[in-house]
C-alpha cells in the first residue's frame, strides 16, 4: 500500500503522517504518534477502550480509519488535562476511585466527557445507558456512575473540552 499524507490535529497540535490511509486511528495514535493512553481492547468497537473524540464526538478509534479523520480534530486522554489541572471528569474518577486496573479508564473518561458535553445533567439511568458501550472487567461500574454524576456537578464551571 502506497503511503498517503494525512493531516489532522491531535490534542490541539497539527499532525501529519504519511502512511496507509486504511490503518486505524488507534494504530496511528499508538504506533506512529506514540500516544499510548488510548487502548486496544477488542478491535471491533465492542468494548469502548479505544474511545477518542473526533470533532467533539466519541469514536471508537479501533474502527475509525485514518482516511476518515483527515482535517479533523482528535482529542485523546492525553489532551484532557490542562497542565497539572485534571479535567473535571478525570478529577471525579480520581476522587471516586472509579478505576481498578485502569485499562478501560481512558476510554471511559472520553465517553463520559462526550456524554456530559451533550447532557450536563444526566440521570443515573442516562449515565448507565450512555456508558453501556464501555466494558470494565474489574466491575467498577457503580463507582463510574458516581464519578460521572460528580463530574456533571463540577462541569458547568469548567471550560469546554479542548478540541
Amino acid at each position: 500500500m502506497q503511503g498517503v499524507e494525512a493531516k489532522f490535529t491531535v490534542n490541539g497540535k497539527p499532525v501529519s503522517v504519511t502512511t496507509d490511509p486504511n490503518r486505524s486511528v488507534l494504530e496511528i495514535l499508538r504506533e506512529d504518534l506514540q500516544l499510548t493512553g488510548t487502548k486496544y481492547g477488542c478491535g471491533e468497537g465492542a468494548c469502548g477502550a479505544c474511545t477518542v473524540l473526533v470533532d467533539g464526538k466519541p469514536k471508537f478509534s479501533c474502527s475509525t480509519l485514518l482516511s476518515e479523520v483527515v482535517g479533523k480534530k482528535i482529542v485523546s486522554i492525553e489532551g484532557l488535562a490542562s497542565g497539572e489541572t485534571l479535567h473535571p471528569v478525570q478529577q471525579a474518577f480520581l476522587d471516586e476511585g472509579a478505576y481498578q486496573c485502569g485499562y478501560c479508564t481512558a476510554g471511559m473518561i472520553m465517553g463520559a466527557v462526550a456524554l456530559l458535553e451533550k447532557n450536563r445533567k444526566p440521570s443515573d439511568e442516562q449515565i448507565a445507558r450512555g456508558m453501556n458501550g464501555h466494558i470494565c472487567r474489574c466491575g467498577t461500574y457503580s463507582k463510574i456512575v458516581a464519578a460521572v454524576r460528580k463530574a456533571a456537578e463540577a462541569m458547568p464551571q469548567a471550560t469546554e473540552a479542548k478540541s
Binding site: R30, Y40, L86, Y99, G102
Partner: peptide, 18 residues
C-alpha cells in the same frame, strides 16, 4: 487510593502493551 492513580487517569501510565 492507588498510588499511581493519577497516571492511570491521564494516560501517562505505561501498561505492558504501551
Amino acid at each position: 487510593a492507588r498510588p499511581n492513580g493519577r497516571d492511570i487517569l491521564t494516560g501517562a501510565h505505561k501498561y505492558p502493551s504501551d
